[in-house]
Design a protein around this nucleic acid. Structure first.
Length: 582
DNA sequence: GCCGTTTTCGGCCCGACTGTTTTCAGTCG
């Protein structure tokens, strides 16, 4: 069951959506969205907060506080239910189509009679929307493309939604009697950025399996039971958990290693491993590595390590099991010693209330100090990000002073660096003059607008940014959003070469919507000797928790801690930052 | 709906881009 905070966040977001489409006061929309965000980030359960203290929280006023109170008392918010009853769910879904906003959705619904994305597709195809005000030929073509892109993304979901669900389920199942081992397998274990369904594996004796299955299908986050058998059950999670399919398999502990290997995949990796097994006189399936001619002679079954070892291979981390040359490296015992979460000691891309963040400089820095980091860089938006309250030149000067002041105060606790996430404008120029950039310790240059630029232009644009002598790294270089926006497609090879030449870093933005660089790009960067940065782009207290997704992406790229500037010592990082300034 | 008051209602962010509406509205960031 989702927490009160999470449920209320969904409620307020839905109210904001309905308010938009029905043409309600747009500031009410903003307030509701803010309320939803605040609740999502809120560290305490609202049920444990005194009503008068709730009102002290920024973004929560009388109206929202009242609804929270109503929800805690009755389990629902009446106004919310009335609102969602007034608008078909399919209409709200259309808000997800890039390029289509509330006005367009309302127009399509009211004057075009469109009530879902499917109907929209249909009506574009049979031209029955011709003459609809605001929807000319080009606009409709663009919408068609947006829809097609979203569809190609299919039923997959971000790792940022799948991993918390998997962990929540494991947290319940792991303590059941008879559960000896439990893991998530599949693409989730391999750390892919999107997940089709979640595969859970439990090691338990046959006599305990039925009870484990019963608990699984009866979990609070279950919306629908798709199957309920002796060794395999499937469920679909509730809306709060994104309707993700979760499969649970129970295997005898003695076969756990073989099963985990089998269900972790990838399929391509498994094929290569099985081929190798065959060539060595073995056969490999989900139960065992066995003698090829007599399958009852099981050689190894219990652990992945033992199976790999028997095949003359070093243990291959799940993130590398994509048939990208990992077997050859494992054979030579030449696999990279992959970076781990605990190696990260600095975050070099974070925001504060100076632009669009939700915490002050000091709150931000103290949170990172509490995590044991030695350094954090404050990198608020530049003036081009007007919607994000980006800082103009004068405000930046004052902001730098404010950061320096906090840095001084926290000396000895954590190093606080003054930085900026400066916009790379469409023409490749930066949003601040060089004289100003020179005042900063860290310059994260990122593209935010004009993200459908053609490839050549995008390459030129990013190369120009890399060439700027004050740039420390390129932030989320393509601007893609996982399953939502394609972003720029620059010549990554050219960018990597240029970044290597300048000795600056390319960022893996760890936010699960971005993961940009993506794994393949990061791999390319490493091949060119480019240092990576893994930053969370944190805007508030919950955001540093996005870090695992960035680290998983780096691991998939084969990165070691030596490849990532966030793993350097404080002194090493200082020296490296200096080196980027020639 | 939130906030901050010159306490009880007015302000709440705005520039670039795109497509289309020939003078601007919608969307994005």
């Amino acid at each position: 069951m989702a927490s009160n905070n999470a449920q209320l966040a969904v409620i307020f977001q839905q109210m904001a959506d309905v308010n938009q489409v029905t043409g309600g006061n747009r500031f009410k929309t903003i307030a509701l969205e803010k309320g939803a965000r605040v609740l999502k980030d809120f560290v305490k359960d609202v049920a444990d907060v005194e009503p008068q203290d709730l009102l002290q929280v920024e973004g929560i006023g009388k109206g929202i506080a009242q609804k929270i109170e109503e929800f805690l008392r009755t389990g629902r918010v009446l106004e919310h239910q009335e609102m969602i009853d007034a608008v078909p769910a399919g209409v709200l879904k259309m808000l997800d189509i890039p390029g289509l906003g509330p006005k367009g959705v309302a127009q399509l619904w009211n004057d075009g009679g469109v009530e879902s994305i499917d109907e929209l597709k249909q009506k574009i195809e049979d031209c029955s929307l011709e003459g609809l005000k605001g929807f000319g030929k080009k606009k409709l073509e663009k919408l068609q493309q947006s829809i097609a892109f979203a569809e190609k993304a299919g039923e997959r979901t971000n790792i940022g939604f799948a991993l918390p669900l998997a962990l929540a389920i494991i947290d319940v199942l792991k303590d059941l009697p008879g559960v000896q081992q439990i893991d998530y397998a599949g693409s989730l274990r391999r750390g892919k950025e999107t997940i089709g369904d979640i595969d859970l594996l439990v090691g338990a004796k046959e006599k305990d399996a039925a009870r484990i299955m019963d608990v699984f299908v009866g979990l609070e986050m279950v919306e629908e039971v798709l199957g309920h058998g002796a060794t395999k059950s499937s469920i679909r999670s509730t809306d709060d958990f994104r309707n993700i399919q979760v499969d649970l398999r129970v295997v005898d502990p003695k076969h756990y290693g073989a099963a985990l290997m089998y269900f972790t995949g990838s399929k391509e990796h498994n094929v290569k491993v099985r081929e190798r097994a065959l060539s060595m006189g073995y056969t490999l399936n989900e139960y065992a590595l066995a003698d090829k001619d007599d399958k009852t002679k099981q050689v190894e079954t219990k652990t992945e390590q033992a199976i790999y070892r028997k095949l003359g291979l070093a243990h291959i981390a799940p993130e590398l099991r994509e048939d990208r040359g990992e077997l050859a490296l494992a054979e030579k015992d030449d696999l990279p010693d992959l970076i781990e979460l605990k190696d990260i000691k600095a975050d070099l891309h974070t925001h504060t209330t100076a632009s669009d963040g939700r915490w002050s400089i000091e709150e931000n820095a103290l949170a990172y100090a509490a995590r044991g980091y030695h350094t954090v860089a404050i990198t608020d938006h530049s003036k081009g990000q007007v919607q994000a309250n980006g800082l103009d030149d004068k405000r930046l000067v004052r902001h730098i002073e404010a950061v320096r002041k906090v840095a001084k105060k926290l000396e000895g606790k954590i190093t606080v660096l003054a930085g900026s996430e400066v916009d790379i404008l469409a023409d490749g120029s930066l949003d601040y003059p060089d004289e100003l950039l020179a005042e900063l310790d860290v310059v994260v240059a990122s593209p935010h607008a004009a993200l459908s630029q053609e490839s050549k232009k995008a390459t030129r644009r990013l190369l120009d940014a890399i060439a700027n002598p004050y740039v420390t790294m390129i932030g989320h270089p393509t601007g893609r959003l996982v399953l939502r926006r394609e972003g720029l497609s620059p010549d990554m090879e050219a960018l990597c070469k240029a970044a290597a030449g300048r000795g600056i870093a390319l960022e893996i933005n760890a936010n699960h919507w971005r993961l940009d660089l993506r794994d393949t790009h990061a791999r390319l960067a490493l091949e060119h000797g480019v240092r990576l940065a893994i930053n969370t782009d944190a805007h508030g207290p919950a955001d540093p928790d996005q870090l695992p997704y960035g680290v998983l992406t780096a691991r998939r790229a084969g990165a070691t801690k030596n490849d990532v500037i966030n793993c350097m010592t404080a002194a090493g990082l200082k020296k490296w930052l200096k080196s980027t300034r020639g």
